[in-house]
Amino acid sequence: MLGYRELPFEVKQTGEVYYDLLKSGRIQIDPSKKIKVPVTLQDPCNIIRRAGAAEKFRYIVNATCEDFREMKPNKEHNYCCNAGGGLAALSNWAAHKAIGNRVKAEQIKATGAKIVITPCHNCSTGIKDVIKIWELGVKNMFFDELIVNSMVIPEKFKVQK
């Protein structure tokens, strides 16, 4: 593409960029704002299994949450959310997809987590369907939400009210 042998820029998922920002200290997390309730992480297939960002994602979760519980199996062995591969668009098949992912419901239930972190939009769609159909009573959150809620905001950016 474009005639380059190697690309003159890096291609990263948002989570990988947030990892860089947290690791290098450009974003500071306020420990008092960390999430207290148990959380678990849905590993997105393509970013984990094929691009290998598993440890980076765990760094973000541990930086912003106090009680992180792994699903089993996890990382590159994790099950898909059942909305990958273009199935996220099929909202009229939602029940079919969620019923076809009983293992995911069992995984989430076994962790006892109250929040499922979904770093990818497809995962969010899939996990929401699973939560609804299997009545798990948990909610899902994105990385950006975690970071915005818990980061230290310098005074100069705060609106005086």
Partner: peptide, 21 residues
């Protein structure tokens, strides 16, 4: 699609392309 994204990257001379998915 890929070509379009790469062309934008080349046009704006960016260092990192950040994708949500």
């Amino acid at each position: 699609i890929v070509r379009g994204l790469y062309e934008n990257a080349a046009r704006l001379r960016i260092k990192t392309m950040m994708l949500t998915e």
